[in-house]
Amino acid sequence: MIPTDAPQIDILTISSAVLMIATFGVVVRRGFMDWLRAYRYQTMALSGVTAIIAYMTGIWEIYIAAALTLIIKAVVIPRVLLRVTSQLKFVARYELNPYISVRLSAIISALLVALAYFLTQQVPFRSDQILRAYLPVSLSLLFIGMFTMVNRRVALNQIVGLLIIENGLFLFATALTHGVSLIIEIGVFIDILVGVIISAALMTRISHTFDNLNVDNLEHLRDDKEE
């Protein structure tokens, strides 16, 4: 129960909650376009969180990191992915039948969040306000991202897991070190960018090769069919 005379709005926790919500937005999407849009929102939330860290710590470099996050991950990467995959047929972009149904994976993700909080409870430096708020979130992001990658069949949609993991790592690093050196960060960003492009291009190839879809297979795939 919250005492009615609580202090000012707990910006840290709320921002971490918003980030969490945005992450769930990505997890529960089936379509490539949908999760890309949701990923954009998640990244915006992430860059907001980064800006908050910058404000709290007063390190100006983190502002740059926040801006970079916004530009590269919310603008460039989605554009690149869109362009690279624009010729792909709908079939290759839509998660018809993940290994675990969306309803169950939503609940599993929630359990992973609980697990992340449970694990980080034991971490000794809970006195650090920023770390206390964001460490569990970043861990959740890692878990959820991995789970998403494991769970998806459509190759293109596995990238979503990768991107979530990456966002989790970024948050982890920023929260833990209060801003790694800017150069390294830029390097990381470019790394990711290249990774995304390569994997997307690879996906395109793959789905071109396996594009001859069998109707009977599709029938079996639909997850709301009995039998």
Partner: peptide, 26 residues
């Protein structure tokens, strides 16, 4: 939504509440 996709949406609500509970206890 397709009838048997609707549980997905409800599952999202459930998951959201679950995370809410986690956040409360932290």
């Amino acid at each position: 939504w397709r009838l048997f996709r609707i549980p997905d949406l409800i599952a999202i609500a459930i998951a959201s509440s679950m995370v809410g509970i986690v956040f409360f206890y932290i």
